[in-house]
Simulated assay, not measured.
Amino acid sequence: MMINMVWGRMKSFWKEEEGLGTLELLLIIVVILIIALLFKKEIMALITKLIASMNSKSEEFTK
């Protein structure tokens, strides 16, 4: 009896339009976090390279 009630509520949650937007947003965030964790070293190297480039360009501009 209790399992049927819980199952029914889960089914109605999946069919509900408002809950679907929240679920999609949550899944997108999870995918972005997984990708960021997988490519953490490459992302950090790119950011470090960009900051170093900005620093050198700003030094050239101030001279």
Rank of each mutant, 00 (worst) to 15 (best):
G19M: 08
A52L: 13
E59H: 13
L25E: 07
M10L: 10
T22Q: 00
T62I: 11
K11L: 01
L50T: 10
S58W: 04
L23D: 00
S58Y: 05
V6H: 03
L37R: 12
G8K: 05
E16V: 09
I32T: 10
S58I: 03
E17A: 04
M54L: 14
E59L: 12
K41T: 10
K41N: 11
A52I: 02
K57R: 08
S12G: 06
S58P: 00
E24C: 12
I3H: 09
L50I: 02
I32G: 04
L37V: 05
G19N: 15
S12P: 03
M44F: 07
K40H: 12
W7S: 04
A45P: 01
M54G: 15
S12F: 05
E60V: 07
K41L: 08
M10R: 05
K49E: 11
G21H: 09
I29G: 03
V6C: 00
I3F: 14
S58N: 08
A45E: 10
M10C: 10
I47C: 07
S12C: 06
V6Y: 03
N55V: 15
S53C: 08
T62H: 13
E17W: 06
M54E: 11
E24M: 15
M44P: 03
T22K: 02
N4E: 06
N4D: 08
E18V: 01
E24W: 14
G19D: 04
V6Q: 09
A52W: 08
L20S: 00
N4P: 00
I47V: 09
L26F: 13
E18Y: 03
A45S: 11
E42H: 12
K40L: 04
M54K: 13
E24G: 09
G19R: 09
G21M: 12
E42A: 10
L25H: 05
E42M: 03
V30F: 11
L50G: 09
V30R: 09
I29W: 05
S12Y: 06
L23N: 00
E18H: 01
K11R: 14
F61G: 02
K40F: 07
K57V: 14
K41A: 08
S12E: 09
S56C: 03
V6W: 03
K41F: 14
I43D: 08
I32L: 01
T62S: 11
E42F: 14
F61D: 05
E18N: 03
M5G: 04
E42K: 09
M5F: 05
G21D: 06
K63V: 07
I43E: 06
L25A: 12
I35N: 01
F61Y: 13
G8F: 04
W7E: 11
A36Q: 09
S12V: 13
L50F: 13
G8T: 02
L25W: 06
K63T: 11
K41D: 11
K41I: 11
I29R: 06
S56F: 13
L25S: 09
R9S: 12
K63L: 13
E18D: 01
L25Q: 01
S12R: 14
M5L: 08
R9Q: 15
